[in-house]
Design a protein around this nucleic acid. Structure first.
Lengths: 136, 136
DNA sequence: TCAAACCTTCACATCTATGTGATGGTCAAC
DNA sequence: GTTGACCATCACATAGATGTGAAGGTTTGA
C-alpha cells in the first residue's frame, strides 16, 4: 500500500529548535515576544516551528551579535524572504528611509570590522613570525 | 622675535573631545574606567587628551556599535598601534588564541552583515523600481 | 566679586538581551 | 496511575552601555 498519507514531519517544538540553533528556549520566546518570529500553536498550546525557523533564528542571532537591536531586525527580516511577501505598496517612505539608513549603518559596521580584523590579522602574523625564527 | 616657545595646542579637555567625537562626556569617562583609554591629568585634575584620542574614541565607538564588548575591545586596541607598542614576548599563548578567536568572530559578523545588507539593497532596488515606472 | 561655563566624582536610573527559577499543564512509557 | 520529559506563563535578577542629576572645585570674563 503506497499510501501517501504520511504525517508531516516538517515541524518541531521549542526544544528541538533550541537544540538545532544553539539558542536557549528563553530567547526563542523572547524573539517571539519581540515579534521577530511568529510560531504556530498546537492544540495544546505548544509552539510549533517548521524547518525555515532554523535559518531564521540563526540569522536573528547573527544580527543581534553584530549589534542590531531587535527593533531594527524586525524591520529587516521581511526583506530577506526570497519570494517577496511584502507588497511594495505597503512600504511607506519612512520605512524605506529607515531601511536605507540601516543599510548604510551596516556598511559602516562592515568597514569598521574589516579594518580592525585585518589589523588583528597583521598583528598575529607578526607575532607568529617573531615566535619561530628557529630555522633560518 | 621668532620665539619658538609656542604653548602646545595639542591637547584638549573632555568637552572638546566629546564634541569632536560626538560622544557624551559620561561615556568618555566610562571608557577610561574600562581602561580603553588612559587620559593624562592636568594639575587641577582635569583630563587632558591629545589629537590621537579622537580617532581612538571613534574606533572604540565603532567596535561597540558592531557588537564587541569593552573587555574585548581593550584587547584589540593594542594591535592597532602602528609602531608596535606591544612587545611580542609579552603576548601569551592565551592572548594570541583569544585574538585569533575574536578575529574569526569578526569575520562571521562581517559575513552576516554583508549578506543582510545586500538583501536590504536588493529589496530597496526592487521597491524603487516598482515605485517609478511612469515613463516606459 | 559674581556668574557662566567648564571640570570633578558619585550615585542612581534605564534599556536591552539574557539567566534562572517557580508553578503548573501535557503526554508518553512503564 | 505515576513518573519523567517535555511544554506553558510569570516574575525576578543580572550585566553592559548609557542617561541624568547632585554637590562641589576651577577658570574666565563682565
Amino acid at each position: 500500500m503506497v499510501n501517501a498519507a504520511i504525517c508531516e514531519v516538517d515541524h518541531m517544538r521549542i526544544g528541538e529548535l533550541s537544540a538545532r540553533t544553539g539558542t536557549p528556549r528563553r530567547l526563542l520566546r523572547y524573539y517571539e515576544e519581540q515579534q521577530l518570529i511568529v510560531a504556530d500553536r498546537a492544540p495544546n498550546g505548544y509552539r510549533e516551528y517548521d524547518e525555515r525557523f532554523v535559518d531564521r533564528v540563526i540569522q536573528i542571532r547573527g544580527l543581534l551579535d553584530a549589534g542590531l537591536p531587535t527593533r531594527i531586525i524586525k524591520q529587516i527580516l521581511p526583506c530577506l524572504d526570497k519570494p517577496r511577501t511584502i507588497y511594495f505598496p505597503d512600504a511607506t517612505p519612512e520605512m524605506i528611509a529607515t531601511l536605507a539608513c540601516e543599510r548604510d549603518r551596516m556598511s559602516d559596521r562592515i568597514r569598521c570590522l574589516t579594518r580592525n580584523r585585518d589589523a588583528i590579522g597583521e598583528y598575529l602574523d607578526a607575532v607568529l613570525d617573531y615566535n619561530r625564527p628557529q630555522d633560518a
